Simulated assay, not measured.
Amino acid sequence: MMRRLPLWPTLIVGLAVALMVALGVWQIRRAHWKEALLAQYATAAGRPPIAFPAVPPTDGSLLFRRASAMCLQPTAWSARAGSNRAGEPGWRHLALCRTGAEGPGMLVDFGWSRDFAAPAGARGGRVSGVIDSDRDHILLLVAETPAPGLAPSARPSPENIPNNHRAYAVQWFLFAIVALAVYAVALRQRWIGRPPK
């Protein structure tokens, strides 16, 4: 006789597997989105330089563009973990720069060092470099020429942005297969222990 599937366990496993498959499909869509975004960033890196905007957009459309601006005076310094162009770990030195009598100013990565302390003698002036974003997604200008006493920070590059979404999709699909296999084994063990009705 035919074995009957238990209703609630089968329903729960079915819903869990459906959710895992849906998450896998979502990760594949995210992979396509990320590939398009990385292509946009790669194109931006090859476009002509622009003036760093007074009010940077928040959509990421300027990331990896070359730009320049006038830092009249650094007003506040912060150090954040980062690397130099050789990949050595240390501290990136960021300064909030005054750009005029009014306005929000701009954030500039003036360079890298092994020392956490703010660089001595760093002054304002024209800054040219590449637009990047900090950990809070605020746009900043990574200076091509570092301030005195600093080495150049690592160049921002779209190649440093991971695209792991396909691997995540494979993981979700494997989880779904494993869940089905485990449930099939559990059903088999249950049926072996009971005679069919």
Rank of each mutant, 00 (worst) to 15 (best):
M2H: 14
R3Y: 07
L5Q: 15
P6V: 09
P6M: 12
L7R: 15
I12K: 00
G14S: 11
L15K: 01
A18T: 08
A22F: 06
G24E: 02
V25C: 04
V25I: 13
V25S: 08
Q27I: 05
Q27V: 00
I28G: 02
A31E: 07
K34N: 05
A36E: 15
L38Q: 04
A39S: 13
Q40D: 14
Y41W: 15
A44G: 10
A54M: 13
P56C: 06
P56W: 01
G60L: 10
G60D: 08
S61Y: 11
Q73T: 12
Q73P: 01
A76H: 11
W77D: 00
R80V: 15
G82F: 08
G82Y: 09
R85S: 04
G90P: 02
R92N: 09
R98W: 09
R98V: 09
G103V: 09
P104W: 13
G105R: 03
F110N: 01
D115G: 12
D115E: 14
F116Y: 09
P119M: 10
A120G: 14
G121E: 11
G121W: 03
G125F: 00
V127S: 02
S128N: 13
G129V: 07
V130H: 05
D132G: 01
D132K: 05
D134L: 00
I138F: 12
I138E: 14
V142Q: 00
V142E: 00
V142P: 01
T145I: 00
A147H: 04
L150R: 01
L150P: 00
A154H: 00
P158S: 09
P158H: 05
P162Y: 10
N163P: 01
N164A: 10
H165D: 05
A167N: 10
A169G: 02
V170Q: 14
W172P: 02
W172K: 06
L174E: 10
I177P: 00
I177W: 11
A179Q: 01
V185P: 06
V185M: 14
V185R: 15
R188C: 09
R188W: 14
P196W: 04
